[in-house]
Design a protein around this nucleic acid. Structure first.
Lengths: 229, 229
DNA sequence: ATATGTTATTTGTTATAACAAGCAAGCCAG
DNA sequence: CTGGCTTGCTTGTTATAACAAATAACATAT
């Protein structure tokens, strides 16, 4: 038989002991983050379970987890529903992001340097390409990926989880950005300024440009939050 | 029969339908926050369910929720266990708290004013009293209550939830503070400085004193985090 | 026609049992 | 006595069914 020493590299891949609930959880979560589920959508237990081809128990677990991170909420009946975001909530999230993502940008500039900059550049380059093809959804997804990748570079796992949670919550309303494209920018695209600051290891410039980018994007979103401020 | 108009006032009270899983969830959560569960403790599904007098299903739901907010984590087998906190994690949490709680303090000073100050004073006054009675556990709980009440005064619900989540995660290691009492302070107790700043509506002074308090408490905790920094 | 009461259906909640994987104790062979 | 195997038990995972509450549909009376 083939011994372990007889081959180089890994030929075994981890058998993902695929948890049914975990899989369902990830599916719904990325659907939320990719704006494929609109605010107000009801996620019914048995119906969803059938669509996923699983039983109610693991389906319920997936929904519970999403409710816990407030990516969904339960209505009076107990049905999971994609939440609407009030203007107040949107502003509060923006405030938190300015602090936490700002911190990540600053730290990424110190820790990631050139390596991180190229990684981000690669992601960002897809945005103009997607826009040229009128593929707004893809552009928005890449924008999300850009921000999250940046935060990952900071190597602050707890901070990262918080930020990702905020993005999941905002996901459903990102679909509104499709309505009339991404907000404009004057001069160089903010992402490029961020990338350059990181490449140069300039923490404070990275923070400032990232915060400017958050505010730019936020302006485009404000109009679409539900009225009851 | 008695008509509705025949009585004055309300004689009906809302019947809160108590969820089994919700109750179990809250129980474990406050146990964690009050440092009654030590790091490394295993929470076995059936065993816990029996202790709570419920079946496995709602018990599992409670554990899942706590795992989701990282108040617990699952070992390789899938058993829920009270997590240990590494020094890195502790430091990261402190950094986040400096920002978010700092913000809450500043905003509380503006929005809560004198009203909030008296509320906080009432909580804080219990601390020297508890210490005088050698009741460290109570003193630590009051300290937690002080910080969380302060954050509630800022009326930033999303921020508050994040902060509370961090406190839950730190809960189990707070028990180490019992070992040799709360960290000392020179001069006026930091809480009193915070309260005064809030009473005067001085946002920046409130922020500064709160951050000083976080650093003071953090110093007492550093020694006890698990080694693998 | 509207309002009210009744019934049927939908939907979340909990309990229970079958299942699978891991771990430990014990047993047998060397 | 030790190594490896088997057996049984513990523990998480999933499916299913009984249950309870809310909603919707329908019928009836005013």
């Amino acid at each position: 038989m083939t011994e372990q020493g007889a081959t180089t590299g890994t030929w075994t891949r981890k058998i993902s002991r695929e948890n049914l609930s975990e899989t369902a959880y990830q599916s719904i979560r990325t659907a939320l983050m990719h704006a494929r589920l609109l605010p107000g959508t009801k996620l019914r237990l048995r119906q969803l379970a059938e669509e996923f081809g699983i039983s109610a128990t693991p389906m319920r677990e997936a929904l519970i987890r999403l409710v816990q991170e407030k990516a969904l909420h339960l209505d009076a009946r107990g049905t999971a529903v994609v939440p609407e975001l009030t203007l107040d909530e949107l502003h509060e999230i923006r405030g938190i992001r300015l602090m936490l993502e700002g911190d990540c940008a600053a730290r990424a500039a110190v820790r990631a340097g050139v390596r991180g900059a190229t990684e981000l550049k690669e992601i960002h380059d897809g945005i103009p390409a997607a826009l040229a093809a009128d593929n707004f959804a893809e552009a928005v997804n890449l924008n999300t990926a850009f921000h999250l990748s940046l935060c990952r570079l900071a190597e602050l796992p707890i901070t990262y989880d918080i930020i990702e949670g905020l993005w999941v919550r905002c996901g459903p309303i990102l679909s509104h950005l499709y309505d009339d494209g991404l907000p404009p920018h004057d001069g160089e695209h903010p992402h490029l300024s961020i990338i350059q600051a990181i490449r140069h290891g300039d923490a404070e410039r990275a923070r400032a440009h990232l915060q400017a980018d958050i505010l730019r994007m936020g302006a485009g979103l404000d109009r679409f939050a539900t009225r009851p401020s």
